[in-house]
Amino acid sequence: MNHQALFTPAQLGSFHLRNRIVLPPLTRSRSTQPGNVANELMATYYRQRAGAGFMVTEGTQIEPRGQGYAWTPGIHSEEQVQGWRRVTEAVHAEGGVIFAQLWHVGRVSHTSLQPGGGAPVAPSALAAESVKVFVETGPGAGTLADPSTPRALSREEVKELVQLYVQAARNAMEAGFDGIEIHCANGYLVNQFISAHSNCRTDEYGGSLHNRLRFLREVTQSIADAIGAERVGVRFSPLFASTDEARVYLGLVEEDPHETYVEAVKILQAIGIAYLSLAEADWDDAPRLPVSFRQAVRAAFAGTIIYAGKYTADLAAEAIQAGWADLIAFGRPFIANPDLPARIANGWPLNKVDEASMYGGTHQGYTDYPAYQG
């Protein structure tokens, strides 16, 4: 199939993108310890993949309580800001455009990763089920553990969290990023507020769908006010299936996911953010998003729409040609193929991912994947 649709230029807010291929957020757990600081190895990793038209960093915690996995980077300390500056300078030297994904895991954490060994924080004191977190903080492979039972945030703490997101966005701009993406997917904090399965609050942040979307609205609007809506994206993981696997890996399944996420998209349209990123299920027999939902999202949102999932180059080109996607993100293929756009353009074969080196470790399975040699 002709993949030319992937290589036509695109506009994302004020940014001119040279192709429509996206490096999505991919947790790799390689930050420097102690301090969860982005480093030269990470700068090399992102620079190698700067052939993408658009790049988003791995999830980056906005505060110490936002960490749910060992060795993931933060963007709440001055040392972390300076570490990320190495990354943005490396990417910009290659002509790339890169946003930082702002992340707070909420209840998907463990007391050993929390300040002072405290309980994780969440909309409600409901433990996350059927998911594991990395708790080991030393070098080597992470030790898996069940998330700890969280404590419910007070109303005042929720307001404070909105401002922590804003400060993280300002920190990202200081670090040289072109903008930020708010992680509202995969069952993490913002998703926990949205979902009736994890939000049992009785104040203005819980109950009705309007109230459950309030935290999303306040965080997004406040960041847009601080750095400009044209520098803001949001990622969701809507899912139209009710399996435990689905709830864990792609967010909390709603009774009416169509209504929930179309209403959320309308909020983002009103704020005027640059893009919406939709992460689809990616296991072998995962359900695809309904065409009716894709059409409703396109009708409700005037900005750029990114899709991610089990996309091949053929499926990606078809999605763009069909008009319901503007950009397509390739996750696992980009891990093993730093030159992925060139491989797609030329029909070159792809390297396979080394599963053993996905999280934590050294340059092996991280920056040593070879470019195509012919």
Score class of each variant (00 low, 15 high):
residue 218 E to R: 13
residue 220 T to H: 13
residue 222 S to Q: 08
residue 223 I to S: 13
residue 225 D to I: 11
residue 225 D to W: 03
residue 225 D to H: 07
residue 227 I to N: 00
residue 228 G to S: 10
residue 230 E to M: 08
residue 231 R to A: 05
residue 231 R to I: 05
residue 232 V to W: 01
residue 233 G to K: 04
residue 235 R to T: 02
residue 236 F to L: 14
residue 236 F to T: 13
residue 239 L to P: 00
residue 240 F to G: 05
residue 240 F to A: 05
residue 241 A to N: 09
residue 241 A to E: 14
residue 242 S to T: 12
residue 244 D to Y: 07
residue 244 D to F: 08
residue 244 D to E: 13
residue 245 E to C: 04
residue 247 R to W: 13
residue 247 R to T: 12
residue 248 V to F: 06
residue 249 Y to V: 10
residue 249 Y to D: 04
residue 250 L to D: 09
residue 251 G to A: 09
residue 254 E to W: 01
residue 254 E to G: 12
residue 255 E to D: 15
residue 256 D to K: 08
residue 260 T to H: 02
residue 261 Y to M: 03
residue 261 Y to C: 02
residue 262 V to E: 04
residue 262 V to A: 01
residue 263 E to H: 07
residue 266 K to V: 08
residue 268 L to S: 00
residue 268 L to Y: 02
residue 269 Q to C: 10
residue 272 G to P: 12
residue 272 G to D: 10
residue 274 A to V: 15
residue 275 Y to C: 05
residue 275 Y to N: 06
residue 275 Y to Q: 05
residue 281 A to G: 12
residue 283 W to A: 05
residue 288 R to F: 10
residue 289 L to S: 05
residue 290 P to T: 06
residue 290 P to Y: 02
residue 293 F to S: 01
residue 295 Q to V: 03
residue 297 V to Q: 04
residue 303 G to T: 01
residue 303 G to Y: 02
residue 304 T to I: 09
residue 305 I to A: 01
residue 305 I to H: 03
residue 306 I to K: 00
residue 308 A to Y: 07
residue 309 G to W: 02
residue 313 A to I: 01
residue 314 D to C: 05
residue 315 L to C: 05
residue 316 A to R: 00
residue 318 E to L: 00
residue 319 A to L: 06
residue 321 Q to V: 13
residue 321 Q to M: 13
residue 321 Q to R: 14
residue 323 G to L: 05
residue 323 G to T: 08
residue 323 G to M: 02
residue 324 W to C: 02
residue 326 D to V: 00
residue 329 A to Y: 01
residue 330 F to Q: 02
residue 333 P to Y: 09
residue 333 P to Q: 09
residue 335 I to A: 13
residue 335 I to H: 14
residue 336 A to D: 11
residue 336 A to G: 10
residue 336 A to W: 11
residue 337 N to L: 09
residue 337 N to G: 09
residue 338 P to S: 10
residue 339 D to Q: 06
residue 339 D to I: 09
residue 340 L to K: 07
residue 341 P to N: 08
residue 341 P to K: 02
residue 342 A to R: 13
residue 342 A to L: 15
residue 343 R to G: 06
residue 344 I to Q: 09
residue 349 P to E: 11
residue 350 L to I: 11
residue 351 N to A: 00
residue 352 K to W: 06
residue 353 V to W: 09
residue 353 V to D: 12
residue 353 V to E: 13
residue 354 D to Q: 14
residue 354 D to S: 11
residue 355 E to N: 12
residue 355 E to C: 06
residue 356 A to V: 06
residue 357 S to Y: 15
